[in-house]
Design a protein around this nucleic acid. Structure first.
Length: 481
DNA sequence: GGTTCTAAACACT
DNA sequence: AGTGTTTAGAACC
């Protein structure tokens, strides 16, 4: 019924450049769509990846399209009913590769992120929610389903629940797992997300096509206090606050946390990149920090750009057991210890000359995390090293030195990040160990046991920065005016 | 047949 | 009004 009502317009009739008869051979130069060969899903992915925090709201995605895709340049003013916007929304909902994260911040729309799980190459078997029975374990599907229910029932938990209750619940891998997990993950991320450096600090021009949303679009969530509460127990703030006076003064009390939660690294080009913690949070943080501490900018770049694309799958599997452990508490410590390091990097803020980074931005910005993980999990290291730390491509000397206690090394190394020459000999290892064990037990007992695992499977979203206009776009910082 | 785009109906905020 | 979700038709490969 009503089928006819649809009056489905002629497929690409409206769009000349679309898949017209003559637009077939994409290879040669013709384009699949009016804007090129990329699908909406791909464009959206790029938009999200280009964002420092790897997440965008619908409106921001629209904006990105308008700004970076010539075809949409003149279509920005069209209202939401515009066909292309409809398509964007449609794609976001349709593809499991996109996940929606509640944005508590303002009454704003949700954040859209890339599903770390990859969401496969695209489609989500989501259709037919009725037949949920199937094995479609797509977090998204589930998340949505459960979300809906939740919303129907009342979702006071999202805001009311104490961080503590969810925190431990932190599913190492957002992707996998059951519905509950996905929800938890979502809410968890939502809680932390605001922490991410949205705009407060200097517009990072390094990530070129990256979007640096100014306060206008990115908001410092009111949940800051919540975050702080959450963080509070972890003492995350202290280090950063003491170390980042500038930051604080500039951004005010609510912003500083950004620094504490974001690690900026610089590549050889002197470009800094900010890594969000919202997605890979605890784990990646520690990993990043480790890398940071151990290797200077150049090294980092080398790591990122270098070698072998690692069997992330395998690696992740190995890492698995550890990740969860490093989460929560441990992580907090890591953060704490990292204070100095972070600050250090911070001091040399953004790429001063605002030089175009092009490729770099891509390697560092767009796929930094995945890369990092990959690096860390490089096969060679994994073989013998049971723990992450050890796997961290650290300068051999230190690595060897700390090798035995991966976690420890991670922790210990952090504080010494500033003075890399210093050896953690004076560090009270036992103390840390105790803490770790304690946390691990707690975590395992209370939360991790129920998940089937911690199968991390961060499929490197290294979408080749093949964005058509990359070079062009990369020329200027994307700062919504 | 699967993918992708387009259109539109709905629901929710 | 904007955002999200679904359903459906059609073009392509």
């Amino acid at each position: 019924a009503a089928a006819e009502a649809r009056a489905c317009g002629p497929r690409r009739g409206a769009e000349p450049g679309a898949r017209g008869p003559g637009a077939a051979a994409r290879k040669g130069g013709s384009r699949r769509n009016a804007w090129g060969n990329q699908s909406y899903a791909e464009l959206i992915s790029q938009a999200i990846e280009s964002a420092p925090e790897k997440r965008l709201t619908l409106a921001q995605i629209y904006e990105w399209m308008v700004r970076f895709v010539p075809y949409f340049k003149d279509k920005g003013d069209s209202n939401s009913s515009a066909g292309w916007k409809n398509s964007i929304r449609h794609n976001l909902s349709l593809h499991s590769k996109f996940i929606k994260v509640h944005n508590e911040a303002t009454g704003k729309s949700s954040w859209w992120m890339l599903n770390p799980e990859g969401g496969k190459s695209g489609k989500a078997p989501r259709r037919r929610a009725a037949s949920m029975d199937n094995s479609s374990k797509l977090a998204k599907v589930r998340g949505k389903a459960s979300k809906k229910k939740a919303s129907l029932q009342a979702a006071p938990e999202a805001t009311a629940d104490s961080p503590g209750s969810q925190f431990p619940k932190w599913p190492g891998s957002p992707l996998s797992r059951n519905n509950e997990d996905s929800d938890v993950w979502t809410s968890f991320r939502a809680r932390l997300s605001p922490i991410m450096p949205e705009q407060d600090d200097l517009p990072d021009e390094k990530l070129l096509p990256s979007l640096v949303y100014s306060s206008a679009s990115s908001n410092v969530p009111p949940t800051v206090t919540e975050e702080l509460e959450l963080i509070d127990g972890l003492n995350l703030m202290s280090p950063s606050s003491s170390v980042l006076p500038t930051q604080q003064s500039a951004s005010g009390g609510s912003v500083q946390r950004d620094s504490s939660f974001s690690l900026r690294t610089q590549n050889s080009a002197g470009q800094a990149s900010t890594f969000g913690t919202s997605l890979f949070n605890p784990v990646d943080i520690s990993l990043q920090s480790s890398v940071n501490c151990f290797s200077g900018p150049q090294t980092l770049e080398a790591l990122l750009t270098s070698s072998s694309p690692p069997p992330s799958d395998v690696m992740m599997t190995q890492v698995d057991p550890i990740l969860p452990q490093t989460g929560s508490r441990l992580n907090s410590q890591t953060f704490l210890l990292l204070g100095g390091q972070v600050t250090q990097n911070k001091t040399s803020p953004v790429n001063p000359r605002g030089k175009p980074l092009e490729q770099q931005s891509e390697s560092v910005g767009a796929s930094a995390l995945p890369s990092m993980l990959s690096v860390v999990a490089s096969p060679q290291n994994t073989a013998s090293m049971p723990t992450l730390k050890a796997q961290v491509p650290v300068p051999a000397a230190q690595a060897v030195h700390l090798g035995t206690q991966p976690l420890l090394s991670s922790l210990s190394s952090a504080p010494f990040g500033v003075n890399q020459d210093r050896l953690p000999t004076d560090l009270d290892v036992d103390m840390y160990m105790e803490n770790l064990e304690c946390d691990v037990d707690y975590i395992i007992n209370s939360d991790l046991m129920d998940g089937e695992g911690l199968d991390f499977n961060f499929e490197p979203i290294l979408s080749a920065p093949s964005y058509p206009n990359t070079s062009q776009a990369s020329k200027h910082t994307w700062v919504p005016s």
